[in-house]
């Protein structure tokens, strides 16, 4: 972007919106929207409170466990669907249903199954994140050129070597894209799970802030969450760009 002949960094547009927010907030038009500077101040205060730090640890732990599970289970499942016709036929329909279903509706069921604790949150993250990882992995495996697999076979690759040295690597660009999208969905899962359970982690904080109309803190927490989701997605994108050179190579 260029402005008056000077290069303006992309983040500058964000600054404009912050200023707009500040002005609207100062005008006191909407009660729900305190000035942006208040929100920032609230964020600084918030991160120093014990309750936020505890909530963050709880939330992060549930998120990490849920994501790890969905990656560890999702990738093999996707490879299975991409390689074995029977696996694809039996699982394909369900994966597609779950990947497009309104999963929030299922969280209450998870509560019945796993109780009002961390397990439900982990299950929610898993449920939100895994399907896109499965689908993207499957697509990646399907894309592998048949001659690359014939090559491995003709040079005597064992099953293990075929999967570990060829299939996993050849599908890696799609697998990483799946993980990136899965992470974003996982953040959704952790928040929705905690909101519905309402007594754990960020869910409890959101509940307290909105019930007591502490809007500055409410927005501060929201911004922290958004920033976190963007940051992890950005990190995965960094890794993705490292393998992008061969993603475009395949026909």
């Amino acid at each position: 972007m260029k402005l008056f002949g000077h290069r303006v960094p992309m983040m500058a547009s964000l600054l404009v919106w912050c200023v707009a927010w500040e002005i609207i907030g100062r005008l006191d038009l909407v009660f729900l929207l305190p000035p942006f500077s208040d929100v920032l101040a609230a964020a600084v205060d918030l991160v120093q409170t014990q309750s936020w730090q505890d909530a963050t640890v709880t939330t992060l732990r549930a998120f990490v466990i849920g994501m790890a599970l969905s990656i560890v289970i999702g990738i093999p499942l996707g490879i299975l669907m991409g390689r074995v016709k029977l696996g694809d036929e039996t699982l394909g329909m369900w994966v597609n249903i779950f990947s497009s279903a309104p999963l929030s509706a299922l969280v209450p069921v998870l509560m019945i199954l796993f109780g009002f604790g961390e397990k439900t949150i982990v299950a929610a993250v898993f449920l939100f994140a895994i399907w896109i990882i499965v689908l993207d992995t499957r697509a990646g495996v399907r894309h592998i050129s048949p001659s690359l697999i014939e090559m491995a076979r003709s040079y005597g690759a064992s099953h293990r070597a075929l999967y570990g040295k060829i299939i996993l690597w050849a599908a890696l660009p799609e697998i990483l894209a799946g993980i990136r999208l899965g992470l974003i969905r996982g953040v959704k899962g952790v928040v929705i799970g905690q909101l519905l359970v309402a007594i754990v982690g960020y869910g409890a904080l959101f509940e307290t802030f909105s019930r007591n109309f502490r809007m500055a803190e409410f927005w501060a927490l929201t911004i922290i969450l958004f920033a976190f989701a963007l940051l992890v997605a950005e990190l995965i994108e960094k890794v993705e760009s490292k393998v992008a050179f061969y993603a475009g190579e395949r026909q």
Binding site: L148, I166, W169, A170, V243, Y246
Partner: peptide, 9 residues
Amino acid sequence: FQDFALMPW
């Protein structure tokens, strides 16, 4: 192989 079948990575 006709299409080389090299590992691009």
